[in-house]
Simulated assay, not measured.
Amino acid sequence: MKIKILHKTPKGFLIGRGKREIKIGSVVIFENKKIGKVVDIFGPVAKPYVKILPINKDIEVTGTAFIKNGKSKYKNSKKKN
């Protein structure tokens, strides 16, 4: 799932904008590298903002990143043909 990185806060967090399927604790990937994880979700439900705790505080990221969600909490979540 894509998210757009908007800016970096003075405390070093990254702020992005995504879609409603984002979960806290999801891994954020930029250019095939893990850059951090989602620690907070806020704003409108349809297009929430996400607060990302970066692995490296000196990181400068702009553009599109990707969210890697964990496994579903539902046992039979695979599509059946």
Rank of each mutant, 00 (worst) to 15 (best):
K57H: 09
K37C: 10
G25R: 15
N76H: 13
E60G: 08
G25C: 12
I59Q: 03
K37Y: 14
N76A: 13
G18W: 05
V39K: 09
K79Y: 14
D40P: 05
G16H: 10
I22L: 01
I15R: 06
I24D: 01
P48F: 05
V39W: 02
D40R: 08
S72K: 02
A65F: 13
K47I: 00
S72E: 10
F42L: 07
V27C: 10
P54V: 04
I55C: 08
F13Y: 15
L53P: 03
G63C: 04
E31G: 08
I35A: 01
E60D: 15
V45Y: 06
D58K: 13
I29D: 01
I59S: 02
T64Q: 12
T64I: 15
I67H: 02
G12R: 00
G12I: 06
L53F: 10
K68C: 09
F66G: 10
R20G: 12
P54D: 02
K79A: 13
D58G: 05
F30Q: 05
R20F: 07
F66S: 13
G63I: 06
I29F: 05
P10M: 07
K75C: 00
V39Y: 00
I22S: 00
G70P: 03
K34H: 09
I67Q: 07
K23H: 11
S77F: 14
K68T: 09
